[in-house]
Amino acid sequence: MLRYALKRLQSLVISLVIASLVIFAAIEVIPGDPASFMLGFNAKPEAVEALRDQLGLNQSLIKRYFSWVSGLLTGNFGTSYTYRSPVSEIIGDRLWISLPLAVYALTLTVLIAFPAGIFAATRRGSRTDVAVMSVTQLGVAIPNFWFAILMVLLFSINLRWFSAGGFPGWENGFWPAIKALTLPAIALALPQASILARVMRSSLLDTLGQDYIRTSRAKGLTRRQALWRHALRNALIPVLTIIGLQFSFLLAGAIIIENVFYLPGLGRLVFQSISQRDLIVVESVVMLLVFAVILVNFTVDLAYAWVDPRLRARA
């Protein structure tokens, strides 16, 4: 198990180094200068030059790359060009929204998908199965931002149960914060739950048809016992893969939902920073997201080994 983990860790580090190079190169070549963006139409060239100096933009690319990477390693992400405050602080604030939102949405996803998937698989071909399949088909097809707008129309404008968006901050209590994240989390979870339920169903159907299930039934286990003890655990591998991918997606891919509900999360930060050419923020957030994705994959790899001992042995 340890060797397996070390091997995974090695590929994690290599991926990170490559990612940092690619991100830095890609973002530095986007046209558009942060200083002239900030000073606008009437700026005198010497004022733009003075600002470029202040921001350290007149240093060489290589020097900037190394100071960025060495900063990242020591936890110093630099100072935002526009906000003029530490990038780590800005990202920290946003994470307190994006991370709970992702966890909330993923929890809803699992809570919906597991029962639905198991239910459909164990009643294959029945009317409930057909119903679950059609609803999930719809869930995959409906764009989440459209669904979000529908929910806002119903729950915020007509019924007035929820605010149309925004975030009160955790300092104003746990429940108001959770309430503010509820509609966005549902909007994010719906398509993900639909995907996961379908994966769960097909994976479970797959394992239910395996010989060892028949053997276990022959040994006298009831259908239910065979399902819980043998089929489910074996069906989990593809499901875990999807959950890992979904978590990364929810963390990084909530940009549109964050815009619809004007939540100050990471997605909106990236969006805003790109248009303002706050390159250092963009680089650091993207790097952080890459790190999160790689870390999630790493964890999923370890989880495989946990559910499937064969993988441990192979490594």
Partner: peptide, 11 residues
């Protein structure tokens, strides 16, 4: 769209 909703919901 969010601006519209926020105004309509009187947020």
């Amino acid at each position: 769209t969010a601006a519209f909703a926020a105004m309509m919901a009187e947020d």
